[in-house]
Design a binder for these strands. Sequence first.
DNA 1: ATTGATAATGAGAATGATTATTATTTAGCG
DNA 2: CGCTAAATAATAATCATTCTCATTATCAAT
Lengths: 165, 165
Amino acid sequence: MSKKLGKLSEISEEKIRNFHEYTRLQGLKTTKQRGTILDVFFRMKGHISVEELYDIVKTVNPRIGYATVYRTLHLLVDSGQVEERRFGDGMSRYEGHSEVERHGHMICEECGQILEFFNEELETLQIKLADELEFDIHYHRHELFGSCMDKSSCAKRRKKNPKLK
Amino acid sequence: MSKKLGKLSEISEEKIRNFHEYTRLQGLKTTKQRGTILDVFFRMKGHISVEELYDIVKTVNPRIGYATVYRTLHLLVDSGQVEERRFGDGMSRYEGHSEVERHGHMICEECGQILEFFNEELETLQIKLADELEFDIHYHRHELFGSCMDKSSCAKRRKKNPKLK
DNA sequence: ATTGATAATGAGAATGATTATTATTTAGCG
DNA sequence: CGCTAAATAATAATCATTCTCATTATCAAT
């Protein structure tokens, strides 16, 4: 953390506090590496892959290893501050937070762009359906695959998601 | 296909016909191996992993290789007769058909049991939301993770999904 | 501040699902 | 039958992720 980074958002700071609270309760230790990884992660936005995160972490502290990034990300998920997502490109992506707590994604198969959506009615409906089958929802994943029809964006972003079929 | 297998359901037979129609149109060939794999696949139910399918295919014709199972499954997906799903256990699963065309899944984190659900209202809502963001849906994935609260089932099936956290 | 117990790290090896390669076999068609 | 492209089997390669283990760091108790 020798390098200076910009300011963190209010919500990110809270998530970092929650994370530390979690590790403390679990009897885990506070390390510089985790600090760096959290700092970098919560300054990024969108749906971040391990590689993307690792690449930036490297620029802050080149001695941090891949495994540590993985481990920290898992801890972040376990602590409930971050969610793990798997779209179709073969790797996990993590998102720290969003404007809305529970939301779905629309994934453009042309360019890989990811849009988020939220609808109260949808949430209610989900709970109703789960109740009918006596199922208790912890979290959900709602993904719509299709075309975003945003020509300029499609062309631009395709390159960044070559694996997306 | 030397081994005799039970009868195929009406819908499975149709899917097999559709598959052959697809391969014919694509100029692809009909092989014994694919025949065997289809026969076995459509007699299985639920959300089938490549390994599960391969294990049974082996008992019918031990000379069939892993790669052929993968290739055939991909063809089945391409032909639109089968859907590929990825839940959280690290491998793809395939489902041939369901009572309902478009449906979601409730996945029990305790035991790995997968329930299916369908709701017309949900479908309509999805389309409405997509329209608002000018998004054209090709297919969707709607998964609710939680607990099925089916004690006996939970205990029984946990063994089969050791990876499920 | 030092120690001791234990968690964390880093580097690289290992894993496991999936894909690619390649030599050989087979289907489909004249 | 005989040709040609596609398919197969076996195996190597790939790639994200996890594990191993020797070393280092944290932190509570001394």
